[in-house]
Simulated assay, not measured.
Amino acid sequence: MIPFTTLSSIAVPVLRDNVDTDAVIPSREMRSTGRTGLADGLFAPWRYSDVDARLPDPDFALNRPEARGARILLGGANFGCGSSREHAVWALAEWGIRCVIAASFAPIFAANCVRNGLLPLTLPSATVASLAWREVCVDLAAQTVAEGADSYPFDIGAEAKQMLLHGLDAIDLTLTQAPAIEAWTAADRVARPWAYLASHRESTT
C-alpha cells in the first residue's frame, strides 16, 4: 500500500448520519469480487438522477466542479454502518478518496479503511461541518487536521497509525515481528521438539 503521511485536499461534504455501505456502493453495483470497476457506482443512489442512464445529479457533492480531484470526504455520525462489505472502501479509494473525516464510524468500516490505506479520522460533528469545501491538510504523524490558521488534534490507535504511515497491510504488520517470531520458534523447538516431528517428516519427504 502507499504510505499515508500528509494529505492536502478540498474536503467534500456528504454530511449525513448513518450512511451505510449499501449507500456507498449498492449491491447492484458490485459486479465482480475485484477491487476495480467500483468507482462508477460510488454513492450511485445519490450521485445519479437516473442510475441506469448514469445521469449525474448536479446537486450531489461529488458531482460539483470543486470536488474534482478531491481526496478527503466528510461524513456524519456512524459512517459506514450496515454490512461489512469491503467494496465500500475499495470504491472510495478507486474514486480517489484517501481520508474520511466523520463524527464516528462503524468499527468494521474503519478497520477496512486502515487495511486498505484510507485514514478514518474522527472529529466533533461541528468541526467536521466547518471543514466543508475548505482546503484541509491532514498530518498523520502529528495527528492534526489543519484548515487555515486552525488546527484540530485527532486520536488514532497505535497499530492503525503504524500501518498507514508505513503502508502496511495486516500481513506486513505481522512480518515486522519476524525476528521475534523466529526467536520464539527456535526456543519452542528446543523446549517441545515433539511438536515439530510431523513438520520435519513432511519437509524431508
Rank of each mutant, 00 (worst) to 15 (best):
P179Y: 11
W184T: 14
P65T: 05
T6K: 08
V145N: 09
S49L: 10
S151Y: 05
H200E: 15
L168F: 01
A44S: 08
T144E: 11
E94W: 07
F154R: 00
T174C: 10
A149L: 12
C99P: 01
D40I: 09
S84W: 05
L173K: 11
G80S: 04
A186E: 15
A110K: 02
P153L: 01
I171A: 13
H87S: 13
R47N: 08
W133I: 12
S84A: 12
S32M: 07
M1H: 10
S199F: 03
H166A: 12
G34C: 02
I101H: 09
Y152P: 00
Q177I: 03
R47W: 04
V138A: 00
E182Q: 11
T36R: 13
S199H: 07
R192P: 02
V12F: 05
A53R: 11
T33A: 14
A146T: 15
V51W: 12
L123N: 02
V145S: 08
T36M: 04
H200D: 15
T185M: 12
A106R: 04
P45G: 05
F109D: 07
T21D: 05
C113A: 07
V51R: 15
W90Y: 14
R71D: 00
R85P: 10
A102R: 09
I108V: 13
L62S: 09
A23P: 00
P179E: 14
A141V: 00
C81T: 12
A183F: 01
D17A: 05
V51L: 09
R189V: 00
S9M: 03
E86H: 11
